[in-house]
Design a protein around this nucleic acid. Structure first.
Lengths: 350, 350
DNA sequence: ATTAGAAAGGAAACCGGTTTCAGGTCCGGA
DNA sequence: TCCGGACCTGAAACCGGTTTCCTTTCTAAT
């Protein structure tokens, strides 16, 4: 490509348009941005040429000029997790509708890479920065990270799904405690008394909140807290769920219901349960968080907590845009979770 | 943010660095790009200030100046499909290692949105464009699409995973036929004679190739081609697989093995089979394509075709970069598939 | 017909880098 | 002492837009 040597082999600019239309570049710019009146005749001529040459203005030059790039940078912990994929897709739609582009980067959960990507986004002069998962979800995030965020993003609005202690930023968070309450009410309502909590790491904000609420719900229902029914550690994937559930069986624990930290790990938990010759939900009920397609995919389909990704992503983006444009917004917003009951949860065995 | 009125509230530039270091902006630029010799003393001073102020050069300005943005645009059909998510993650790694940034956009399978996103990427002056899935996979893509690609991407290297007839671009494709052969050898080797082919649309290149190879393999093994064992239509997701398998049962077809067009639809197919009271693999074997985590997640785990995403993504990006830098590369490259046998496929019932 | 005021549009500066060009410094060799 | 070349470095142009400033042109009111 770019090899043919017929005359018109260069990318055209407003100067080219201006010359052919017999007007100044300023006028072309005015037509394109609609920022000022231009005589209909000249406007038509410019628009005709724009279409004729399929001219697209150079977004880089524009961004350089008005020091607004109209790009929102998004950093996710793991794009392969459907939770983030869903959220990203929703953010992209919202941003697009508002005239913004999103630049996605994926840290793969690596804190160092996270840092590099933040620098990269800053060099790209994104107008705002949204971080979903990763260090911002850490209950006690490393100082190094906060420092970097403070330094690099000093002049850029930051919106996170977690909580950054020392950072002046916006947060849109899920009410994890409320979600846990929904699950616990559901399970206790079905007669469950030995409810396990599996997966996640306690130094992650949401997971910690879930745990606290779990204990509180137990107390409210006058159920004893049994430490052998709680297994944490590992990452938020299938393998971890599988390992943790296996270990719980080995330890002789006999839950009648399991709350998985997310759908992903629920899939592993279910596998372990099946391999141990138990049926779902007759012997053990399993519920999860996130309500991704994984929940619908499982057999039986998983009872899960839904967040309304469309609204969640929208809130993230709207918050970012408000901050960019200097409008006031709530510093901390909360997304309300909703319970979706499916076949994986049923009455407790007698 | 950007609210505190202590002196240093502006984004600093090379001019600020230059002034404080007592050198010219050119010298600062030279230090940063390492494009020319600078006296050690001045170099140190500049680097010291760069660190002191945590200066990051404006990538937009740089791109504008050398008309190379060092950004590769990627368009995927559906980022929620782990196949694309995996591929994207791999591309991003490869690009990062080569000093490039990737700009991901997601068309959600909507052809019109696809067009808009291509324009957007062009405005962002990406150095190359990689399209994974969507219109490029269509056997007979709409003329409108090809026209747009030709027009908008006229000066930019294009790499696609499918095939664009009228377009002068690079292709990195999976050898779908070879993949089908692997599956058919596997199944016939297990004694299967009634092998169904389910999911996908025949007007999609890869799907079409699979079908042709399916027929050929049948012939080679002297098995009759039974049209009731082939079900196409719908999209490439779980729901489609479920529907199509249900319909096949209703039609009275009795396959002993099913080849799903991908893991995603295999999940739906498995559900249908289970709901019809059959066991996997004792009664029916199921195999799929893509070997995403979905394959590992299913119960029993799915026999699937793996592509080595790391290498696949790498090839896509390397091809793009070669084209950017004007190096010669093969116009058409092929990714070799590999069979991963798991629990979902077994001996045919007698 | 005159003129105030609005509307339209060109020239030039600017955004923040990179690169070319030309001048200056310093060196060794004649 | 003079000269050629290697090595540095600053001035200025450039990338492709937007925007300010100011002049010109039009319109309408007196």
């Amino acid at each position: 490509m770019a090899e043919q040597n017929n005359g018109e082999n260069k990318v055209i600019t407003i100067y080219d348009i201006a010359k052919e239309a017999g007007v100044s570049p300023s006028t072309v710019s005015r037509v394109l941005t609609n920022n000022a009146k231009v005589r209909q005749e000249k406007r038509d001529k410019v628009l005709y040429l724009v279409r004729k040459y399929n001219f697209r203005p150079n977004a880089l030059a524009r961004s350089l000029s008005d020091t607004r790039s109209k790009v929102i940078g998004i950093l996710v912990a793991d794009i392969r997790n459907p939770y983030y994929a869903e959220l990203f897709a929703s953010c992209e739609r919202a941003a697009h509708n508002a005239g913004y582009t999103v630049l996605l980067t994926n840290s793969s959960g690596d804190p160092q890479r996270e840092g590099e990507l933040i620098e990269l986004l800053q060099e790209q002069r994104v107008d705002a920065f949204i971080q979903m998962g990763g260090s911002v979800d850490a209950l006690f995030s490393e100082e190094q990270y906060e420092e970097r965020l403070n330094r690099d993003m000093a002049h850029i609005p930051v919106v996170v799904t977690g909580k950054v202690e020392g950072m002046d930023c916006h947060m849109v968070r899920i009410d994890s405690a409320q979600a846990m309450k929904l699950l616990m009410e559901h399970l206790t309502g079905l007669g469950h008394k030995r409810i396990a909590l599996i997966g996640g790491r306690m130094d992650v904000l949401g997971t910690h909140e879930k745990f606290l609420q779990y204990q509180q719900c137990l107390a409210e229902h006058r159920l004893v807290f049994d430490p052998t029914l709680v297994a944490e550690g590992g990452s938020y994937d299938m393998e971890s769920g599988y390992e943790l559930m296996n270990r719980m069986f080995e330890n002789g624990a006999e839950p009648t219901a399991v709350i998985a930290v997310n759908d992903f790990s629920a899939a592993g938990i279910v596998r372990s349960i099946v391999e141990h010759g138990k049926r779902i939900p007759e012997d053990i009920s399993v519920v999860g968080y996130d309500n991704t397609y994984i929940a619908r995919m499982m057999i039986p389909p998983l009872t899960s907590i839904d967040y309304n990704y469309e609204e969640y992503g929208n809130r993230l983006v709207q918050t970012a845009i408000c901050a960019i444009e200097g409008k006031e917004t709530d510093r901390l917003q909360t997304v309300t979770p909703r319970l979706v009951v499916r076949g994986s949860s049923g009455r407790a065995p007698e």
